[in-house]
Design a protein around this nucleic acid. Structure first.
Lengths: 227, 227
DNA sequence: GGCAAAACATGACAAAAATCATATATTGTT
DNA sequence: AACAATATATGATTTTTGTCATGTTTTGCC
């Protein structure tokens, strides 16, 4: 528990922690705890007060929100290198989203007091976090436009491409992120049956192939071209 | 042009500029320019490089993005007291959205260099901006969930309530923000005809009344209850 | 390996929303 | 005031998407 050292951890290169000084990293290293989270486990839930952030060392989780009609909407996928929970910490609010592991994960938990004091005192760090949030906001706006203006088929195709471009394939050419049909439906905001139906269509059209839950993108441009 | 003084401007109380020191405000006051923008005028467009932020002293504008199918999606309404353009500045990217005045506006333009140096040097200011962005991100997530999971009628009802609760009525009881039916359609992400049709329905159901473009909310709870 | 539960698949139908057509009202301009 | 341009309104129809039903496959577990 918490034996490895932040200053030597390569993961930090991918997130705002890279802006911290060696001293700050040493302090964080001393008070962080690292945990293993099993597939399907809840990291935190909507409404929870977080008292720190999670730095994802391995694995993937989904951030989702339960809507009034009882369906879960997946808002974001968080992967190796990402930080988790900064927004609630900074806004000093309870979590707006739930985080659930999609496969086995390894995360480090850094207590709130550390992060907040570094944000106050290290302007490189706060600027980096600011930039990250500006970027996230831009992405959110784009998602809103897509949700509002595109068909379910287009949105599903784009989700496949997003996963393909951001998280890549594994050795056998299948997407490295493996989601259930229900998860896809919850990303796109549609009924599970509709997601299944459209994936079948895409198969027939030769744009993807599948093997169980695994999906292989066969024609990137074809997916991009969907009316 | 630019004669009034930031340190005395009450508008700043509503945004992150309140976290600046008197000296910083004096400096900004010296280099800002204030402009009047007519209804329908474009403040900036998608892809423009901004070299400063706008502080809205009066009026309302819409932030929207053109989607692939040629329709505009309105992502946010910006009103008196809000800042405009921070995200592009912070992210050092071209504007992701277009800003168009919905009525006559008065804004102050503050050059990039000023804002960025204050962000670097005044941690109260950067923390305030950070909190604002954390809040915006939360709002964005909620919009995504609504777009994905709710019917057009529910979304339109919520938009009316949003405007009612955030911007209020004017003396005669009509919403103080006056939008065209097309604007409503572009907020909700639907066809203009659908927006018109649903507003007619809401009238028949006694939840709203209208007079030309003006809309009066007659039954807040009724609007909230829409299945 | 066998069994139950969960996930996937697909058809039939219903509901929601988009599109097309057309009519009326409002607004801005001369 | 008259006109054109724009915005609002509403009907008819088509397309998209959701729901319900039912069967098949896969998965986890004893």
């Amino acid at each position: 528990m918490g034996m490895s050292k932040c200053e030597q951890c390569i993961i930090k290169q991918f997130n705002s922690l890279k802006a911290l000084t060696k001293d700050e990293l040493l302090r964080i290293s001393g008070c962080k705890t690292s945990k293993v989270i099993k597939k399907g486990e809840v990291i935190f839930e909507e409404g929870d007060m977080l008292n720190g952030v999670f730095c994802v060392k391995d694995g993937i989780c989904k951030l989702s929100k339960l809507s009034a009609n009882g369906k879960d909407q997946i808002v974001k996928l968080v992967v190796k290198g990402d930080l988790l929970g900064q927004r609630s910490l900074i806004g000093d609010e309870s979590a707006n989203l739930s985080a659930v592991a999609l496969n086995d994960m390894e995360v480090c938990f850094i207590p709130k007091s550390e992060i907040m004091s570094d944000l106050q005192n290290n302007s490189n760090f706060s600027m980096d976090v600011l930039q990250q949030m500006a970027h996230d906001l831009k992405e959110s706006d784009n998602v809103i436009v897509n949700m509002a203006q595109k068909s379910v088929k287009q949105r599903l195709a784009e989700s496949l491409l997003y996963i393909y471009e951001h998280f890549g394939n594994n050795d056998d050419g299948y997407l490295s992120v493996v989601l259930s049909r229900e998860d896809y439906a919850n990303i796109v905001g549609t009924a599970t049956e509709s997601a299944i139906r459209i994936l079948s269509q895409l198969k027939k059209e030769g744009l993807i192939t599948t093997s169980g839950k695994q999906i292989k993108i066969e024609d990137v441009n074809g997916l991009k071209r969907i009316e």
